[in-house]
């Protein structure tokens, strides 16, 4: 049974969003990291890159699989978690602590399409 953090928004592709004003902090859920197994690399966009809701902005890699990271929102990348470059295992250790990118949202309305913790629990049970 994977952990689901309260107070976050979730996408069907298992990304979470923590909203901080106009900025969306994005990571992957505990369910996603458990499915991946030991994460060996996180492919992230650069700061100032544009991301679009529903499109991939990077990928998680493990030894035998890879999984695209799908952006839950559109906007401009304002920060990325460079610590993950050398320590991708931080996502395995605590998926909700290890954020991946921060996005300045161009359309906060896109958040409405995401799920709350309770709704997400139905698909990531």
């Amino acid at each position: 049974m994977s952990k689901i953090a309260e107070g976050l928004l979730y996408s069907e592709s298992h990304e979470w969003v923590r909203v901080d004003g106009n900025v969306a902090i994005i990571g992957v859920s505990d369910f996603a990291q458990a499915e991946m197994g030991d994460i060996t690399y996180v492919d992230m966009p650069d700061v100032d890159d544009e991301v679009a809701a529903g499109e991939d902005f990077g990928a998680l890699e493990s030894v035998k699989t890879s999984s695209e990271l799908i952006s839950p929102v559109s906007g401009r990348v304002v920060a990325r978690n460079d610590e993950l470059e050398d320590k991708p295992e931080l996502i395995n250790e605590d998926a909700y602590e290890a954020w991946i990118i921060k996005v300045e949202m161009s359309d906060k309305g896109e958040l409405d399409r995401l799920m709350n913790a309770a709704a997400y629990a139905n698909i990531a049970g």
């Binding site: 990928a59 699989t65 890879s66």
Partner: peptide, 13 residues
Amino acid sequence: TLQAREQHIRREK
């Protein structure tokens, strides 16, 4: 190693 770059895992990507 680094096989997640390759076609048998990443397919069209």
